[in-house]
Design a protein around this nucleic acid. Structure first.
Length: 419
RNA sequence: GGGGAAGUGUCCCGAGCGGCAAAGGGGGCGGACUGUAAAUCCGCUGGCUAUGCCUUCGUAGGUUCGAGUCCUACCUUCCCCA
């Protein structure tokens, strides 16, 4: 891959920023992209109500495709396949959702995409198809006759995703086993409907994608291509996109821009350069400069990373605000009024609220028991003063410009406001 | 259809002679050290109106002063035979 000199901006960007893990035919893809004719899709399941950071990498590839004028991005909603479950790499079968759930998830996800892609009818405008459109209309007998006959069970059994399940004696249901057929068929259908010739995805999707290319050849599509991105783990080996409180969601109603900004701000040193390339659109020389920073200076690079990533998902204003809040909170030790807040009835407040209860109400701890333990471990602070007496209470005299600042550990702060 | 094994702290894995709020990991959280990083070390990791009370070991019963542990039935998963 290092030998390859792309003609298209699309592949050049992808290559230099580290998005490419494997590609079935780089020069083939390059040619289409150079002509601006590359129509590419990525499949997304609708198991969750939003997209999270794990979806960001493939989504950025679609964004670059659009931005470099390489062609048309098709984020495909797996409204049909979500009802099946993908065995790839997963140890456990995916839960099967109701149709109503899937629809709700789809609607929510559509909103997230609009932050990253421009939709419309133009040549490089994105379209969001849903494979339920064709999968639910399939007739079993016809599907077997027209599509099923092209699949070799022998080969399906030899695929890693299947082999793994068989070797571990883990249940692999017939529906899941069919997943790859449906995904392959999606590719063909997208070719027929939109002229889509490239499927992208995480490296764990390689097998499924190639199966689609094969099916296409047998069913008379033009040449199809596969391009996968590396699976991302943090430098210390953890999976991307998980934090204490769960997934790092991309929409504001599930994870505030402030928390999103913090997620990126807390990137491990060793990942900073990689993330700048993958998750921001800063010019490469700027990234190289930031990457070269050493020691505590890396924090500057992390702030840029947090800003750029947050701006993309939540807008520049939200990013600026998060940065300002971070500065007053962490660098000046103050209590920015933009910290997350929780309201408490004035009446209750007047009588004084127990510290333990207050922390529970603020959502910083799950129970008074946990609050008690945190007090013992020195983890709770009220207005930056450590809580030592678990029976203390909070009242009006603790107000600092209309709120009480509760902190758990160094990083989690909530403002308690009487209302 | 017959025979066998297993399901444990609602994150996961996993010990558990009838006295168990239940060993040990991993993960997570907090503390120290730092740079809102990593690594390392230490503490915590059922709930509550709290020196006590309540709820937890697949489900439902039973034996017992007392059951995660013994008995019965059922559910689920896996293995072997047909």
């Amino acid at each position: 891959m290092s030998e390859f000199a792309p003609k298209s901006d699309f592949l050049r960007v992808l290559a230099e920023r580290g998005y490419i893990h494997q590609c079935s035919d780089l020069s083939g893809v390059d040619e289409k992209a150079a002509a601006g004719d590359l129509i590419a899709y990525i499949g997304y399941d609708c198991t969750g109500p939003s997209l999270h950071v794990g979806h960001l990498l493939p989504t950025m590839m679609l964004r670059w495709l659009q931005k470099t004028g390489g062609g048309k991005p098709l984020p495909l909603m797996g409204g049909g396949t979500t009802r099946v479950g993908d065995p790839s790499g997963k140890d456990e079968s995916r839960k099967i959702l109701t149709i109503a759930d899937i629809d709700a998830n789809k609607a929510s996800i559509r909103g997230v995409f609009s932050n990253f892609l421009t939709f419309g009818d133009g040549k490089t405008d994105a379209i969001m198809p849903d494979n339920a459109e064709w999968l639910t209309a399939l007739n079993y007998i016809e599907f077997l006759r027209d599509v099923g006959r092209h699949f070799s069970v022998n080969r399906m059994l030899s695929m890693d995703s299947v082999k793994m399940r068989l070797e571990r004696d883990q249940e692999l249901s017939f529906i899941e086993f069919n997943y790859m057929c449906l995904q392959a068929y999606d590719f063909v259908e997208l070719y027929r409907r939109y002229g889509c010739m490239l499927q992208m995805g995480g490296s764990d999707q390689w097998g499924n994608i190639v199966t689609g290319i094969d099916l296409g050849r047998r069913m008379g599509t033009g040449q199809l291509y596969a391009l996968t991105s590396p699976l991302l783990t943090t430098a210390s080996g953890a999976k991307m996109g998980k934090t204490a409180s769960g997934a790092v969601w991309l929409n504001a109603d599930m994870l505030s821009p402030w928390d999103y900004w913090q997620y990126w701000r807390n990137t491990e040193d060793a990942d900073t350069g990689k993330f700048l390339k993958l998750f921001t659109e800063l010019p490469m020389d700027e990234i190289r400069r930031l990457e070269a920073l050493q020691g505590a200076e890396i924090n500057e690079a992390k702030k840029v990373l947090a800003n750029e990533a947050t701006a993309m998902a939540h807008g520049r204003a939200a990013a600026d605000q998060a940065m300002a809040t971070a500065r007053t909170t962490f660098e000046e030790g103050g209590a920015s009024t933009d910290l997350p807040g929780v309201d408490i009835p004035q009446s209750e407040f007047a009588e004084g609220v127990g510290v333990l209860t207050a922390f529970v109400r603020a959502g910083l701890v799950a129970s008074t028991g946990e609050a008690r333990r945190q007090v013992k471990g020195g983890g709770l602070r009220v207005n930056d003063t450590a809580v030592t007496d678990e029976r203390a209470s909070i009242s009006a005299r603790d107000l600092r410009s209309g709120a009480v600042k509760l902190s758990l550990g160094r990083k989690k702060h909530v403002l308690l406001r009487p209302v």
